[in-house]
Write a protein that binds this DNA or RNA. Structure first.
Length: 742
DNA sequence: AGCACGCCGACT
DNA sequence: GTCGGCGTGCTC
């Protein structure tokens, strides 16, 4: 049942009804009627006491394929959430709705008392109302009564006196009956709706593969043809043509009659890829991502279920797509953190993909220029097959990268410097030459904080332990966690001082700086603030690809997988943004982001150049990213993780306990930690300690970490600890294999 | 007294 | 997620 933290429930059903895993049923749950999904069927010779009986079977055939039901169950066990939560991810959008979503109406009926009452004792309005109710044999809905000038107040008064009865009734109407009839090709959206990405049209197979690509393909098609489970890590530098390998491999697999799942971090950010896949496989492709409307998602899901497609492109939830005979699962940019869902069910799309591949006997290909330490370690140990693309297509050189020491810039130009002289000059040169530039700063807004020079107070969020970010164009200061916002104050809110200072820069400020510097440049900004609306990012990227823009300023959104041949300059305003975070993955994230964004330069005929501004020019993640030296970074980072006992040398589970006060949060967490320590023989329990974001949306947060090599033991301990403290269960968030320490 | 609101436990 | 039960605190 679609209820968080609730395990599998057992219901009775009459003998003789066809029941199979994957079928949906209507069942009573407490006072409600809900739509559940059958996970298992057990036959009993005699009736079992204490079970409620399912009300109705909604499907004649399993809606969710049996293997996907099993996969969802595995994910629920592994990630410590309710099976209904993972199963919900596997169901088509509209089937997720509760039975209550069948229109529920309030119906009034006459009672014996009401029929017998002396109508002379009633008011005019009551008399009119009771007359209407009495003449309707099956009762009359309150909505109908209202349209006949009988207000809810009048009918409520009659109900209170027991003269009419009001009941909630579900309208018996299965939304799928209507849908199934109408499922047509209308759902075959135009490759995500926004087709033309940069690059050429025509079949992607027209391009001749490089020698390296050919070698990788030979190995991969070999592995795929074995029709047995294996995992390959395709480590290819930026611009080496990994997509080309995926597409050709996918084509080979589907020609052998097996299905292909292509998982990508966020299609909405890379509309070009969707278009490419579309051109490669035509209408044998389905697309699944959150940018589609409910109706579109529903249609795409059913196209897959019916077997109308053999290639599915989608974001993490597509790992549960109802595709049959899966022979290949590709996880593109496997290191990308958006594969991990940041709300329950907190599953990792890549890791679920590997389990699905194992169960299906499929080849799983993980691709990245900057593999996660987890994946690369498995490749090193031989568990995954390692394939490497070391050269760019057409042997184009990687960008030449310069690290700009901002300490020197500060010394020379004063504390207000944002763009170094070198980066500013480089942008100017590109404008002169008619070439394009990307400028990255992974932080949105104009300023990160508003600081009072008189009393040293900083404008903070009243609900969260964080400073408000200044968005100047909106003249608002906003919390990026709870969305609380205020007008930017003219005077300090604590001392009324009038000398307020903007501290810390964001993309909005960078855009303004570049405009100041180069008033004629055509500049656009890409971050969550500017591309909130559907299709907005595709529009900007398209304009950039058509060279209607000279400079693109943005957050990590501009670093992801885009292929702009005319970009010859990449500037990173501050490589340090992610390094300050209290997270053992800070260096890895910084390395990945820098490598990815630097890889956007020089993908066309002209050599690319990049500038990375930093206050830590000797930090290893910056140095190795500048050289695009993944191996050096990996060796160094792995050593750090080993010595500090962090993943991938062991596994972690994070628990966050929330409470209305800090003391309460600590006390509650301490109870759970005690219980965990009690069970801890093979793992360590760290904490409780205030979480880095100690207050969020008005709640105080305290953290506990489990660290160990035996995940099952840790999961077991968490289950038992939460079982022993049922009263706290709702206040605790459990994250298995957390990607963030926040 | 009557009820709005929030918290908590239960849901097969 | 959401319902019912129950306690607290407020209004008439």
């Amino acid at each position: 049942v679609p209820v968080p933290r609730l395990g599998l429930l057992t219901y009775a059903a009459p003998i003789g009804i066809r029941l199979e895993p994957g079928m949906r049923v209507l069942a009573p749950l407490g006072a409600r009627t809900i739509t559940g999904c059958i996970v298992d069927v057990v036959e009993e010779a005699a009736p079992v006491d204490g079970l409620k009986t399912i009300l109705r079977v909604l499907d004649e055939q399993p809606l969710v394929p049996a293997d996907v039901v099993k996969l969802a169950q595995w994910a629920a066990d592994y990630y410590l959430c309710g099976p209904g939560e993972t199963l919900a991810a596997a169901l088509p959008p509209m089937a997720r709705q509760r039975a209550d979503a069948f229109k529920r109406q309030r119906v009034a009926r006459i009672t014996p008392e009401g029929a017998a009452v002396d109508r002379g004792s009633l008011t005019d309005k009551q008399r009119a109302a009771i007359a209407l109710v009495a003449e309707a044999v099956d009762g009359v809905t309150l909505r109908d009564l209202e349209s006949r000038q009988v207000t809810a107040a009048v009918i409520g008064g009659l109900a209170k006196r027991g003269l009419v009865a009001i009941e909630r009734e579900t309208v018996d109407r299965d939304p799928f009956v209507a849908d199934e009839a109408g499922v047509g090709e209308a759902g075959a959206t135009e490759a995500g709706g926004h087709a033309h990405g940069p690059g050429a049209s025509g079949s992607p197979f027209d391009v001749e593969p490089t020698t390296e690509q050919r070698d990788a393909l030979t190995t991969l098609t070999g592995l795929a043809s074995e029709q047995a489970f294996s995992v390959a890590l395709l480590h290819g530098v930026t611009g080496s043509g990994k997509t080309q390998v995926y597409l050709r491999l996918a084509d080979a697999v589907r020609r052998h009659g097996r299905g292909v799942l292509l998982l990508v971090p966020e299609i909405a950010l890379t509309p070009a890829l969707a278009a490419l896949v579309r051109r490669a496989f035509g209408d044998r492709v389905a697309i699944q991502h959150s940018g589609l409307s409910e109706g579109e998602r529903h249609d795409q899901w059913h196209r897959i279920r019916r077997g109308d497609v053999d290639v599915v492109v989608g974001t993490r939830s597509a790992v549960f797509a109802p595709l049959q005979q899966v022979g290949l699962i590709v996880v593109d940019e496997e290191h990308d953190t958006s594969y991990k869902q940041d709300e329950s069910p907190r599953y990792h799309g890549r890791d679920v993909a590997i389990v699905r591949g194992r169960e299906a006997g499929a080849l799983v290909v993980l691709g990245s220029a900057t593999p996660s330490l987890e994946s690369f370690q498995h490749a090193q140990s031989g568990r995954y097959r390692l394939l490497t693309l070391e050269r760019r297509v057409l042997d184009r050189p990687l960008a030449s990268v310069s690290i700009v020491d901002m300490r020197e810039e500060l010394a020379e130009q004063g504390p207000d410097v944002v763009l170094s002289g070198r980066l500013r000059k480089a942008i100017g040169q590109r404008l002169e030459a008619g070439e394009q530039s990307l400028v990255l700063l992974n932080r949105r807004g104009y300023a990160t904080a508003l600081f009072c020079r008189q009393c040293a107070a900083t404008l903070e969020c009243p609900n969260c332990s964080i400073t408000l970010t200044v968005h100047r164009s909106a003249a608002r200061a906003r919390c990026h966690y709870c969305d609380h916002e205020v007008r930017v104050p003219e005077r300090c809110v604590s001392c009324a001082g009038e000398f307020l200072e903007y501290r810390g820069v964001g993309t909005e400020r960078i855009e303004a700086e570049i405009r100041d510097c180069y008033p004629d440049a055509r500049i656009a900004r890409v971050d969550r603030d500017t591309v909130r609306r559907r299709g907005a990012i595709a529009r900007v990227l398209r304009r950039f690809a058509r060279r209607e823009l000279d400079v693109l300023v943005g957050t990590q959104m501009i670093a992801k997988g885009h292929d702009f041949p005319e970009v010859t300059l990449v500037g990173v305003v501050s490589a340090d943004v992610g390094l300050g975070v209290a997270d053992f993955r800070a260096a890895e994230r910084t390395f990945q982001l820098l490598t990815q964004v630097v890889g956007r330069a020089g993908r066309g005929a002209r050599q690319g150049e990049a500038y990375i501004q930093t206050l830590y020019p000797n930090h290893y993640s910056i140095r190795h990213a500048a050289k695009q030296d993944y191996r050096a970074f990996y060796d160094r980072e792995l050593e750090y993780r080993r010595s500090m006992h962090y993943p991938p040398s062991l596994s972690m589970v994070s628990l966050v306990v929330k409470a209305p006060s800090p003391g309460q949060a600590i006390a509650d967490a301490a109870r759970i930690a005690r219980q965990l320590r009690h069970a801890a023989s093979s793992f360590d329990v760290l904490g409780p300690a205030p979480a880095p974001l100690s207050r969020l949306r008005g709640e105080h947060r305290v953290q506990i970490f489990l660290k160990g090599t035996h995940r099952a033991a840790m999961r077991q301990a968490v289950i038992r600890a939460l079982d022993a403290h049922r009263d706290l269960a709702r206040r605790v968030t459990v994250d298995v294999d957390p990607l963030s320490m926040l």
